[in-house]
Write a protein that binds this DNA or RNA. Structure first.
Lengths: 94, 94
DNA sequence: TAAATTAGTTTATATTATAAACTATTTTAC
DNA sequence: GTAAAATAGTTTATAATATAAACTAATTTA
């Protein structure tokens, strides 16, 4: 009756990150931090998890001499998000 | 931008339980256990949490001499569920 | 040039979800 | 009639998770 909710997406911060990345070409660490209102530490950890799952790619470069971390959602990430949403709808429909 | 997701509802099992209770008059422990495909221990703990939050009521009686645990959602529970769903929609809309 | 700010990472902690182990009856099988 | 299995749960231990605190390293500001 109730299918498993992908535990990687069933997390407030990771879901918010994916939600943002789904609708933009790419987003910088600092932007994600601001939009999700998260601490840098928490965000860093959750981005790594999404990256390890192959749901996003993380590019680390430099803007001048400051580190610049840029994230993009992958096709796998988009598919996982879509499926998460579909599964979730079974839980929240009345 | 992203509002807090009620942590009491942002749990697979508790959300499934609430989802069921929202659409029925009441449900027995054994029925919830079967429909959510959970272990009795896990279900017992999660029902207690929902009850302590005032989202459901738990009535313990006997069917003959066997224990019979019956759950109902409260108005508070219905409202919390509605708000959770509304908040969640901000995360999953594209 | 000392203090604060930026952009993160690593690590420790607190919370949570979950199942294993347990209790207490009741039914079934021999 | 009694030993073994099943029912209906609860309590407790453990594993996983989310989160923030503490840290690094460079940069800007005063």
């Amino acid at each position: 009756m109730f299918k498993e909710l992908d535990p990687l997406l069933h997390s407030q911060l990771r879901l918010a990150v994916m939600s943002i990345l789904i609708s933009v070409e790419s987003a910088e660490f600092t932007v994600l931090k601001e939009k999700t209102n998260s601490t840098a530490g928490n965000l860093s950890v959750q981005l790594d998890k999404l990256s390890e799952a192959g749901y996003i790619t993380i590019d680390k470069s430099f803007k001048g001499k400051k580190p610049l971390t840029t994230c993009k959602v992958t096709n796998k990430g988009i598919n996982a998000f879509e499926e998460y949403v579909n599964t979730l709808k079974e839980y929240i429909k009345k």
